[in-house]
């Protein structure tokens, strides 16, 4: 994955670039809005990581300009500003995802990977991971030939996990995409939902598909 990080805080930018390179991605840096815009126009990137407040040209304008030129590279906005309305503004300006500072790298990585993959588009009607099968049209879930009955929310949870099979999804990503809540519940309610789902899809099978990634989130994958 090729990334462009537009962030004026040199330390933060270097840290991010280093962290992304460590997990095998290519990361370029730009330290102000104009430079970032020029690079984004030039290079072929899978994802842009754009700080909201930048010298010369602010992050939302960078994204707006790119979109007006027909460049649809997914962009993730980093912002130190508040949450609810700021997020809405960011997404309205053409951003694809939004992460308030301070963030954890695992959260950023998970979101970036999801954004990069989204371009390919995984919009099949049936998702398959190992012997687990989810039919998005008939809302049927089968594993090893027998049907698993899920509650509507459990179905959506599994659907989201399987859509991003092999990728780590974080708790906040689940909360945002499955529940459409953008706040942080004080208790980790998601964990309980996951363990319920896990008991339905993995219980009784020798091979577990739904895994917890410590300090990051969850991943559904066929580890064979």
């Amino acid at each position: 994955m090729r990334l462009l990080i537009i962030e004026d805080d040199r330390d933060a930018a270097d840290y991010l670039a280093k962290a992304f390179r460590e997990v095998g991605h290519v990361a370029d840096l730009a330290t102000d809005g104009e430079e970032g815009l020029a690079q984004a126009l030039d290079g072929q990137y899978d994802v842009l990581i754009v700080d909201r407040m930048l010298p010369k040209l602010d992050g939302l304008s960078v994204i707006g300009t790119l979109r007006s030129k027909g460049i649809e590279t997914p962009a993730l906005i980093l912002s130190a500003l508040g949450q609810v309305d700021d997020r809405v503004k960011g997404l309205r300006a053409g951003g694809d995802d939004y992460l308030p500072k301070p963030y954890s790298f695992s959260e950023l990585l998970a979101r970036t990977e999801v954004l990069a993959r989204r371009r390919g588009g995984r919009e099949e009607t049936v998702y398959r991971v190992g012997d687990l099968e989810l039919d998005r049209l008939s809302h049927q879930v089968m594993r090893g030939g027998s049907e698993i009955i899920l509650q509507p929310r459990e179905f959506r949870l599994l659907e989201y996990l399987m859509k991003h099979a092999g990728q780590v999804v974080t708790r906040t990503m689940l909360l945002e995409n499955v529940w459409d809540y953008h706040f942080d519940p004080q208790t980790n309610v998601i964990d309980v939902h996951i363990s319920r789902l896990r008991s339905k899809i993995d219980k009784g099978f020798t091979q577990a598909l739904l895994h917890t990634v410590r300090g990051a989130g969850y991943v559904i994958r066929d580890s064979k």
Binding site: G82, Q83, V84, D85, V88, P100, P102, S104, F183, D184, Q186
Partner: peptide
């Protein structure tokens, strides 16, 4: 992380109290 959560909650309260969240 706990500190960040506390901080976010404080900001949220401040925003609600100052009436900023009235848009939207």
């Amino acid at each position: 992380d706990a500190l960040i959560r506390t901080f976010n909650a404080l900001l949220m309260i401040a925003r609600a109290e100052s009436g900023q969240a009235r848009d939207g």
